[in-house]
Each structure stands twice: as structure tokens, then as C-alpha cells.
């Protein structure tokens, strides 16, 4: 026998916390963007993203990948903390007790509302210790300078950081396909650093995602 009133927590039914219309709030007078919880949000104009790419390439050359990756890791750490606080307060549950499906749904909607594009998990290789993340419509891929290898080092850093904190283990992330190279989506592989080591060389050799994964799992 189900009691409907017991299903309500304080008469609430938590659902879509990150709905764009509700999550992003602006204060015209102060010229500020805020989240629904009152945290400051920062809007990045396309020009700034392009300038970051161009400036880094000029100042640091090849090392700009590492700089972007580390910036992503740093931002990802703060993103994770904020996401964890928001979601656990909204759902009134500790983050670790949250069902994977609810967590994933919140993260996907959050990704969209933050303007990072569409996000999905591919669990094909999870039994081999790799998690594949697919994203679509990434602004960082769209504005990336022309190149021959995947360009979303900032997002790779973010994902490495987020999934490291989630799993409590130090994880690495490499990108194996990129919209900036004409791929249908961006694919990122998350796993232990040591096991992902061979991937970097395979990407340099221009192998695609489908060719890289079996070699990583071998």
C-alpha cells in the first residue's frame, strides 16, 4: 500500500532544478547574473574564448593544451562543489546516496543551462574501467583554432576533475573525437591515468575513437 502523502517531502516534488528559465537570473540594475540560489554566474563572450585560445597559443605554444587542461581541472573542482551543494540541498539528500539516474539527469540539464552543450554517458566500456562521455554543440570546440587533433582540453580537464571527485580516485581524461575536426560529437574517455597513457600517442597518430577504445581495453 503506497501512501501518496509520504512520497512528498515537505509537500515538495524535486524535479528540474537546472531548468534554464528558472536557474539563470539577472539583476539589470547591478548588471549581475545569478543562479537561483544567488551564486554569481559569469557569462563568457565568444570573443573572450577566442582571445584565450589565441593568447595562450602565442604565449605558451604547445603548452597551451596543458594550461587549458589544468584550468579545466581547477574550474571543474569548483563546479563539482557547487553542483554537489546545489543538488544535495535541492533533493534534500546526501550526494553519495543519490541514485545514478537522478544525478545524471541533473548533470545533463546543468551542462545545457551552463551553455556547455548536450551531454551523455556511454557505458559501453564501464566494465573495462573506462567511462566515455559524449558532448554535442560545445562552444569550446566551435571556437577552437584550426588543428589536427581534438581541441577541448578545458572540458577534458573539467571532466577529469568532476569524475575524480565523484569516484574518490585520481582520474585522467582524454578526448578522442572532436566537433572541431568534423566529428558528430565530442568523445572523452575517463579512466585511471596509467591506463589512459597509451591513448595520447594513439590520438597523435590520428586514430579515431572506435580504433582507440579496443586498443585501450586490450
Amino acid at each position: 500500500m503506497i501512501s501518496v502523502s509520504d512520497l512528498l517531502v515537505d509537500n515538495r516534488l524535486p524535479a528540474n532544478y537546472y531548468a534554464s528559465e528558472v536557474y539563470v537570473r539577472g539583476d539589470l540594475e547591478m548588471g549581475l547574473l545569478e543562479s537561483r540560489r544567488g551564486d554569481r554566474l559569469l557569462a563568457l563572450p565568444e570573443t573572450l574564448i577566442q582571445a584565450i585560445y589565441a593568447g595562450l597559443a602565442k604565449e605558451t605554444g604547445q603548452a597551451s593544451r596543458l594550461v587549458l587542461f589544468n584550468c579545466g581541472k581547477w574550474w571543474g573542482k569548483n563546479f563539482y562543489n557547487r553542483f554537489r551543494d546545489e543538488v544535495s540541498a535541492y533533493y534534500d539528500t546526501s550526494f553519495t546516496d543519490m541514485p545514478m539516474a537522478d544525478f545524471l539527469q541533473a548533470l545533463k540539464q546543468c551542462w545545457i543551462t551552463y551553455g556547455l552543450g548536450k551531454f551523455d554517458l556511454d557505458q559501453t566500456y564501464h566494465s573495462r574501467g573506462f567511462l566515455v562521455i559524449k558532448t554535442w554543440n560545445s562552444p569550446f570546440a566551435r571556437l577552437a583554432p584550426e588543428g589536427e587533433t581534438p581541441a577541448c582540453f578545458l572540458e577534458a580537464g573539467i571532466l577529469a576533475s568532476v569524475f575524480s571527485q565523484l569516484s574518490g580516485r585520481e582520474l585522467h581524461c582524454v578526448q578522442t573525437s572532436c566537433e572541431s575536426l568534423g566529428a558528430d560529437c565530442n568523445q572523452f574517455v575517463v579512466g585511471l591515468s596509467k591506463r589512459l597513457e597509451p591513448a595520447e600517442a594513439l590520438i597523435e597518430k590520428r586514430l579515431d575513437h572506435e580504433s582507440i577504445m579496443p586498443r585501450l581495453c586490450a
Binding site: T96, M100, A101, Q123, H126, L166, S167, G168
Partner: peptide, 11 residues
Amino acid sequence: EEDLLTIAGMF
């Protein structure tokens, strides 16, 4: 169909 697994159990 979607498996309901946990992140912590994966790695």
C-alpha cells in the same frame, strides 16, 4: 533500458 549503476563502483 538503462543500467542504474553507481559512479563509485566503476573504477
